[in-house]
Nucleic acid binder design. Sequence first.
DNA 1: ATCCGATGTGCGTTATAACGTACAAGTGGA
DNA 2: TCCACTTGTACGTTATAACGCACATCGGAT
Lengths: 189, 189
Amino acid sequence: MDSAVESGEVTLKLREVRAATGLSLSKAAELTGVSKAMLGQIERGESSPTIATLWKIAKGFQLPLSALIGPASLRDPADERLFRTVTFPGSIKVKIVFPFDPMLGAETFHVTLAPGQSYESAAHASGVTEEVFVLHGALEILRDGDWVPLRTGQGLRFAADLPHGYRSGAEGAAFLNMHHYPQQTGLPV
Amino acid sequence: MDSAVESGEVTLKLREVRAATGLSLSKAAELTGVSKAMLGQIERGESSPTIATLWKIAKGFQLPLSALIGPASLRDPADERLFRTVTFPGSIKVKIVFPFDPMLGAETFHVTLAPGQSYESAAHASGVTEEVFVLHGALEILRDGDWVPLRTGQGLRFAADLPHGYRSGAEGAAFLNMHHYPQQTGLPV
DNA sequence: ATCCGATGTGCGTTATAACGTACAAGTGGA
DNA sequence: TCCACTTGTACGTTATAACGCACATCGGAT
């Protein structure tokens, strides 16, 4: 039915993965423990698999679960241009360098602060870690209640599930900001 | 039934996420378009959701899909990858910006290439992803047999489990090099 | 105390995911 | 050519995901 296709905002890369390994549906079925009929339906978008069966498939192919989910993220740099640009309330300029990848659990932003500009961020979800690498200018980062000074070429890694903030010096600042979300690549059992 | 628990090798973090936002099942149902009965069953592990409904949930909570998947299982940090200083053949200059963190599965290097210098790397372990962000100069990256040109401020993400390489232009280059290691399934081939 | 709204869970029905088998088309081989 | 084999898809059945509704429980307010 087309309902599956229409509902599928999630595009599964099963066919690509299987094609990459050169396996037939039968062998893939034997390898994963999922019937080849079902594998075929999933590939054609006629069926929306359970995460249980999706896990079987991932395990059979010895891949992380996220390798089957979502758009292919290992792409040429052309793709990276059309990713959204985020603008935060404080009107800091944020460009996306590396979009979020569920397989990596990471994304990277390019942030520009005007001279003397500051931005405070509320606590993120639990387990989130941020890394900051200063490209230009000088920067101070509020971490654990202290403002840590950073110069160009310096980096700082800190837990982002606490309130934190950034403020630039008199010359402004530009920095890379990597967000790491807790690894989700599940383990069997 | 414990059959659900047993079959569910994937544990979902729905309950934690919902608790973190302080939402009730009813409001979560209204927000996501998934019935609260089903949400409850999923939380208790009595039902293995379809990726379609899992996607609804993630979208309702405005979270990446991976935020719901998988046990944030604690991997033992016993990893031999804890080297602090890296020296590659060809005498490329490599400084460690962010050391390897087993929780993140990531590390970041600062690499400097002399003008015209090149370095080719063999394939890394399966599933390793690299990200490169050019700080100074111009760079070309060998990926899938093609040399991809990058200028200052540009980035490239690619799978590092294939042979790849870097070479600088006439002015040399400096770039950040992030390595992302996946969590292993542990199954031998 | 009784009401009230909200919480999360159990039940019966419907939709559909998943299976096993059977089938049509394609590929070589002798 | 005929045959043995593999490819992927179609069919009928079973298991279960997902729904709507009803129920028990817990607070807070009156």
